[in-house]
Computed example of a mutant assay.
Amino acid sequence: MGAGQSKPESDDNEYRHETPIQFSQDVVNHLADRVNLPETTPERQTTLDAHIRSRIQADLKQLRTEEENVQREIEVALEKENLDRERSMAGDTEEEAHGDIKSSTSLMNDIEEIRSKVDRTQTRQQLGDLFEVNEKSQAVASCYQSNPTTPLNCWREVASFKMSVARAETQYFESLR
Rank of each mutant, 00 (worst) to 15 (best):
Q5T: 14
Q5G: 12
S6R: 13
E9L: 15
E9W: 14
S10F: 10
D11C: 05
D12G: 08
R16Y: 08
H17T: 10
H17A: 13
P20Q: 09
I21G: 01
I21V: 09
F23E: 08
F23S: 02
V28N: 07
V28I: 13
V28Y: 03
L31R: 06
D33K: 13
V35D: 09
T40G: 02
T41Y: 01
Q45H: 06
Q45E: 04
Q45R: 09
Q45S: 08
D49S: 09
H51L: 12
S54F: 09
Q57H: 12
Q62E: 05
L63Q: 02
L63K: 13
N69V: 04
N69Q: 08
R72G: 01
I74Y: 09
A77Y: 02
L78S: 06
E79G: 10
E79V: 08
K80T: 07
E81M: 05
N82V: 10
R85Q: 04
E86L: 05
R87W: 04
R87D: 09
A90C: 07
A90F: 00
G91D: 09
G91S: 05
T93S: 03
T93A: 02
H98R: 10
G99N: 01
I101V: 13
S104D: 04
S106C: 01
S106V: 08
M108L: 12
I114W: 03
S116Q: 11
S116G: 01
D119E: 09
T121C: 03
Q126M: 01
G128M: 00
D129T: 04
F131Y: 11
V133M: 00
E135N: 10
K136V: 12
A141M: 11
C143P: 01
S146C: 05
P148N: 02
P151W: 15
L152N: 09
C154K: 05
C154A: 02
C154I: 01
R156E: 14
E157W: 09
A159Y: 15
F161R: 08
F161G: 05
K162F: 09
M163N: 10
M163V: 09
V165A: 04
A166T: 15
R167Q: 11
A168G: 00
E169Y: 12
Y172S: 04
Y172N: 05
E174G: 03
E174W: 10
L176M: 04
